[in-house]
Design a protein around this nucleic acid. Sequence first.
RNA 1: GCGGGCAUGGCGGAACUGGCAGACGCGCCAGACUUAGGAUCUGGUUCCCGAAAGGGAGUGGAGGUUCAAGUCCUCUUGCCCGCACCA
Length: 812
Amino acid sequence: MPEKPYDHNQIELKWHERWQNADFYKAEENSAKPKYYVLEMLPYPSGTLHIGHIRNYAIGDALARYKWMRGFNVLHPMGWDAFGLPAENAAIQNNRPPRDWTLQNIAAMKKTHRRFGFSYDWDREVATCEPEYYRWNQWFFLKMLERGLAYRKRALLNWCPKCATVLANEQVVDGCCWRHEDTAVEQRALEQWFLKITDYAEQLLEDIAQLEGGWPERVLTMQRNWIGRSEGTEADFKLAGAGEPIRVFTTRVDTIYGATCVIIAPEHPLNENLLDGAGKARAKAMVDGRANRDPADIEKEGFFTGHYALNPYSGEKVPVWIGNFVLMGYGTGAIMAVPAHDERDFEFCTKYGIPIRPVIRAVDGALAVNPKQAFTDDGIVENSGPWSGLPSDEARRKMSAYAAQKGFGKAAITYRIKDWGISRQRYWGTPIPVIHCPKCGIVPVPENQLPVVLPDRIEITGSGRSPLENVPNFVNVPCPKCGEAARRETDTMDTFIDSSWYFYRYCDPRNDRMPFDPVKIAYWFEIDQYIGGVEHAILHLIYSRFFTKMMRDIGLIRNSEPARRLFTQGMVIAEGAKMSKSKGNVIGADSLAEKFGADTARMFVLFAAPPEKEVDWRNEGAEGIYRFLGRVYRFATRNLGRVDFPAPNDTDRKVRRKLHQTLKKITEDFETRWHFNTCISSVMELVKVLYAEEDKISAQPMCEAIQMLALMLAPFAPYLSQEIWDELGNQGPVFRQAWPSFDPELAKEDEAEVVVQVNGKLRGRIHVPFGTPVQELESRARSDEKVKPFLEGKQIVKVIPVPDKLVNFVVR
RNA sequence: GCGGGCAUGGCGGAACUGGCAGACGCGCCAGACUUAGGAUCUGGUUCCCGAAAGGGAGUGGAGGUUCAAGUCCUCUUGCCCGCACCA
């Protein structure tokens, strides 16, 4: 066969068409093969397919293809973005609810992704975008409502003015909306739906231990911090006079005899009664003053309320202050200030001349008033009535127990994580399936009336109230209980609900009786490998862990964690900044693919850097990959069907060695660290050798080389591999072939190259058989022509021979 | 402030366990084939000295451990990420 030019358009178009309706991507459930569930969670926000997406896909797709070839039964659906944000963006543009568009969008994405040769099980993906998926979101919601895991309350909530909706705490980044990084989040008091993720705080924290090793340490640390468990004591300070007691939370109850005042958060509900009009105004100013500011820049401020409270342990009467550094969102929203033993209290009390009274002595030191700073370590309790003389930890235990016994407090564990606010006043998302009846209160929509679907035509108001409120035949419904006129809930669910369990639905996408069949889940779960950006660390990855535990507790599944292993690929940044539409630095992948083809685009992304590393993207250099693929293709075509091969000779061994070395390298990388950049470079080296020895290679190794090239490139460049595979006269998709195994004997070099150093400097190299004894190694090295001059006239102090590797002479 | 990461040619990066620093690619330089090439093939390319052989220096900086350090230790500089008045 004569050499063919590498026409990527023609090759990719041909296979693109043939693969359109092919079903070989589909997993074979319950087959006898070992199973492997690989899933990518996509970087958002998208709209267009950009280099960041391609990177994510290319990594996961390479792994999936490799696993297929290793004989695994692979479930490889795409990530969740398809029904998430693009749907929202489209809803904005089209002034319509996202359902139809989502399906259209999926079809478009399907096309694009197929074009890049990504091998997903698309039927599963599409299933999670259909309105039917709403039904099961609602079903889960009702289950949670039954169990008290979903509830409604009035609270201060994060409000994004651009989205005109509330946000969960996890969706606030540096005081701004996660979707609008330049828009400050406001606080609004609203009645909203919450999921009780705090009920699972302890488990979410504990089970992190199970993920150790499989998940990046960084993500686990972020989750630990986010959950933020701390053990301490709650205690009531009764007001001197009438009024509700002030409950404080402290981790250092052992220092309570040193409490010289009580400080309340400015937005604390007690202030309603505690403060006069002027006081309330000051408190409000404080709340506003610290909004969206770096705490380090805010000076501690406060004022005396005019009230006093009683220390429940000592009976001491202490002033009650308002302080801007006390957070309503943590603990009880009130603290006892122990300036001698807490830095913040120290700073505050020093400023306002509140007394500082030490009650902890360092274990090896005297009780001393340090006028400069607080002593925050544990020590021995002093001047604390009956507790004096106890070590801090013992005092804490006994004093907590005492509080419980006397009824003014208890040992308490506080978490930083708060319940998940899921209400959204958007015109997309799953409607929350409840009805507000003036008589019966909140009434769940009966299960057989699910799903509650969005009305077809919606007018955007942007008013901050749900646009659904303006659709009478959506809102006005009879109460399912009493039949009287009632109102349907108009809030919709956070789209993070969708993403919390979509990967379960993938296992059973057409089920219309349950969210999924537990038997199928038991087969596929846990996810073997989840791949995505680190930006999901505390949003999606906490929510989906919570959902998994919830589903386990309602008896649907058995696993406690969704994914065994998580790989966080590095972000693709452009011009030093994260790619985002608002910055206008999104680099589309299409131009690259148009110019050089999908194979080149995918492979170039993998070649640019190891997958875990962040890359600052530039398109220069793609030619290198394109040239390489051309070299491979031309080499294969001109040698296929050639008849004038030389007889078997020495070169064959050399070529086969390189072949098996390359295969070894790639195989080992897939099994361990996924450094596909070096995998690709080793194939380049192989091709270099093939070019150099082309005329000398005999028929059999040539055939082997071409076949192996097709197979080992299949995870990275599917179209080209498939084309070569086809030219070789084979049937079927190349990535359903067996991954070639390497022969470790063939991969070995004949001789060891031993480096000779004199005083650590390279002076020569010798070739010896493997396993040459050290004495011989030394004498061979000593007599080497290059080395000799550096030894002459010198005294050899020491010789360090390392078998098969190196000899170092230490001379004087 | 606390916690984590990174630093290697003109550029992306390689060197996985301490043992040849700069694989592979881009870019650049030269040659071959060509009417021509932005196609293809071959060779060169860390820096300095040298025509060459060769020599010297060299992995952000300063020290240390070691026969041997990009890799380990201490300090330091710069950049990036996470958390942050969490009581």
